[in-house]
């Protein structure tokens, strides 16, 4: 195997490890830190199933963002939903046998790349055009968008313009999964695409991308509004009663 292939194999194992361990550690931290007071943003659901429904609306439809800013919502939702379709489409590289539904959704995943890139472009434009958003943007906000944009554009290029050897790509990915590394295709666009994906995985647990797991732990969204009916007491707060 070429040095390049070895580099990519090591890169992906390292990236996966950092991603999984990093995110797991964060989730553990969120799970373990107590929420001593009932602070749901009201009106809030009074039942657990109601909270699940609220959270689903938040995660799938970006309900609060919709209330807040229609432009940010449109771009944000286009980007996220586009990326979701694209990610699902990519599952075929991880499975030896592609199930029917996955084969059937391929065209949707294909064109979703445009949703994703268009959404990103809109979000990025806001960082320049809206004075308030410009004020709060840090270099890392721009770099994050550049990275995602790079991933989206390089991916779309391979789908629509300069096709890459997807058979060999699948071998590479399955090789990683089976711990029997295979050479990586020597296509510069693909190599760039893969490198950027690995970087994204590595920075995920140490960046604002933590909003993805974070939203599920947000007490203002995941708490049931029942403080009068149930006594809610954190361990450290209970100690004060001793």
């Amino acid at each position: 195997m070429s040095t390049l292939s070895i580099v990519y194999v090591v890169l992906f194992y390292a990236a996966t490890l950092l991603f999984v361990v990093g995110v797991a550690k964060k989730i553990l931290q969120y799970t373990r830190s107590p929420a001593p007071l009932k602070i749901p943003t009201t009106p809030a659901p009074t039942t657990t199933s109601g909270v699940a429904y609220r959270m689903a609306r938040e995660v799938v439809l970006f309900e609060s963002l919709f209330k807040s800013s229609k432009w940010t919502w449109i771009f944000g939702w286009l980007f996220h939903f586009g990326m979701f379709l694209v990610l699902v489409r990519h599952l075929r590289y991880f499975m030896a046998d592609v199930p029917f539904w996955l084969a059937a959704m391929q065209p949707f995943g294909k064109y979703a790349a445009f949703m994703m890139v268009a959404g990103l472009a809109g979000l990025w434009a806001r960082r320049f055009l809206v004075d308030r958003v410009r004020y709060i943007s840090t270099p890392s906000d721009h770099l994050m968008l550049a990275l995602l944009m790079g991933i989206g554009i390089s991916g779309a290029l391979m789908t629509f313009a300069a096709h890459t050897d997807i058979v060999q790509l699948k071998m590479f990915v399955l090789g990683l999964l089976r711990f029997a590394p295979q050479p990586v295709p020597q296509d510069p666009v693909l190599l760039a695409h893969l490198a950027m994906v690995a970087v994204l995985m590595i920075i995920f647990p140490i960046s604002k991308l933590l909003h993805a797991p974070g939203v599920f732990f947000s007490p203002t969204r995941n708490q049931v509004d029942n403080p009068r009916e149930r006594r809610h007491l954190a361990d450290w707060a209970a100690q004060l009663e001793k």
């Binding site: 964060k26 931290q29 969120y30 830190s33 107590p34 929420a35 001593p36 602070i39 609060s64 963002l65 807040s68 800013s69 940010t72 944000g76 979000l123 806001r126 809206v130 308030r132 958003v133 709060i136 943007s137 840090t138 906000d141 604002k208 933590l210 909003h211 974070g214 939203v215 732990f217 947000s218 007490p219 203002t220 954190a234 450290w236």
Partner: peptide, 23 residues
């Protein structure tokens, strides 16, 4: 940060989207 999950999650989760800036 250890006593309040709200603070820990809120410190991490913001993406600077700007939704709150005019609220």
């Amino acid at each position: 940060l250890k006593k309040y999950r709200s603070l820990q999650v809120f410190m991490d989760a913001c993406v600077h989207c700007g939704a709150c800036t005019d609220k």
